[in-house]
Amino acid sequence: MLFRQLEYLVALSRERHFARAAQACHVSQPALSEAIRKFEEELDVPLVLRGRTYEGLTPEGERIVVWAQRILADRDALKSEAGALRTGLSGRLRIGSVPTASGSVALLTAPFCLAHPLVTVEVTADLRSDDVLRQLRDFELDAGVTYLRRGLGDRFRTVPLYEERYVLLTGEADAPAHRTAVTWAEASRLPLCLLTGAMQGRQVLDELFAEAGVLPSPRVETDSVAALFAHVRTGRWASVVPHTWLHVFGVPYGMRTLPLVEPSRTVPMGLVTSAREPGSVLARALAEIAGRTDVAAALEHLPEGPGPSPGAS
């Protein structure tokens, strides 16, 4: 059994196509297919359902690919650990984030890169919360920034970062006059642009609207918080956005933000890593940075700009 065979099987499981898997592994399709066939002979079990096209993995293949992911993750962790002992941390740190939290990730990557100059960082934003956890389980991510909801269980370690709260974002001409806050019920009657229903961030909003006894009917839905700002800029829409994104954009010119009340509730956000030992040395290093970084305080400092501050009348 060779690591290369394990890599090919994992790539095939991920890409669900022989040609794309071969391209991802930088080999020819016949070479990848033959290596997997020999792997099946070594294990004496069929791993791939073969027809005129790729038809998926066999039940045995689904089980073996989990072992392959674990073995490859342990190999990478061993190499990183050895490298850290020799020259300090190096390699590539992979972080995934839900859309509402992606604007806060830089508050972790900046001190991390300063402390570990030989490490490069890859950030995948706009993931669903379930996708963050799945990719952590499948060793496709080293860490995630997502909602610290109940039921994470013993498979993950968490570092609380901040409490997400929500503001109404409108065009300045459409903001309720002489108000310093707006209720969720009032917001529901505006022409809204919101995140899509599949996103955890939207599900949180729906719970808050429901708590106020209303059901929003957005005319536009998107999986991008930046797109929410873009739609509000047109003057046709209002939106509900997490306060963390004001740290990125401030309150853009011509817009206004108002805190949402009745109910007033926050949602805990944090760094999530696998609890599996020994685990990723890069993930441990990021968790250490997160533990001593006051992300919540940093998010309260908004960039200077022409727009009024959040909640200003």
Score class of each variant (00 low, 15 high):
171 G>W: 07
172 E>G: 10
173 A>S: 09
173 A>R: 10
174 D>Y: 07
174 D>A: 15
175 A>E: 01
175 A>G: 02
175 A>P: 04
176 P>R: 01
176 P>K: 00
177 A>P: 09
177 A>V: 08
177 A>F: 10
177 A>M: 06
178 H>E: 06
179 R>W: 13
179 R>Y: 09
180 T>R: 02
181 A>T: 15
182 V>L: 01
183 T>D: 04
183 T>Q: 04
185 A>H: 03
185 A>G: 03
185 A>P: 04
186 E>I: 01
186 E>Y: 00
187 A>L: 00
190 L>K: 08
191 P>G: 07
191 P>D: 05
191 P>Y: 11
192 L>K: 10
195 L>C: 04
195 L>V: 06
195 L>E: 03
195 L>N: 03
197 G>A: 15
197 G>L: 11
197 G>N: 11
197 G>W: 09
198 A>R: 10
199 M>R: 11
199 M>F: 15
200 Q>Y: 13
201 G>C: 09
202 R>N: 05
203 Q>M: 09
204 V>N: 03
205 L>E: 01
205 L>A: 01
206 D>I: 15
206 D>K: 13
206 D>G: 12
206 D>V: 14
207 E>N: 07
207 E>L: 08
207 E>Q: 11
208 L>K: 02
209 F>A: 00
209 F>D: 00
209 F>M: 02
209 F>N: 01
210 A>V: 02
210 A>N: 05
211 E>L: 10
211 E>P: 05
213 G>T: 05
213 G>A: 11
213 G>I: 04
213 G>K: 08
215 L>P: 00
215 L>V: 05
215 L>K: 05
215 L>M: 05
216 P>R: 11
216 P>D: 01
217 S>Y: 12
217 S>I: 09
218 P>Q: 12
219 R>L: 05
219 R>A: 06
219 R>E: 01
219 R>K: 13
220 V>K: 13
222 T>M: 02
223 D>K: 08
223 D>N: 13
225 V>Y: 00
226 A>E: 02
227 A>W: 08
227 A>G: 07
228 L>K: 08
229 F>Y: 03
229 F>T: 00
229 F>I: 00
230 A>C: 09
231 H>R: 08
231 H>S: 14
232 V>C: 08
232 V>M: 11
232 V>L: 12
233 R>Q: 15
234 T>M: 15
234 T>W: 12
235 G>E: 12
235 G>P: 14
235 G>Q: 12
235 G>T: 15
236 R>K: 13
236 R>L: 10
237 W>H: 13
237 W>Y: 14
237 W>A: 04
238 A>I: 14
238 A>T: 15
238 A>K: 14
240 V>W: 02
241 V>F: 08
241 V>K: 02
241 V>G: 01
242 P>M: 12
243 H>T: 11
243 H>N: 04
244 T>K: 03
247 H>K: 04
247 H>E: 01
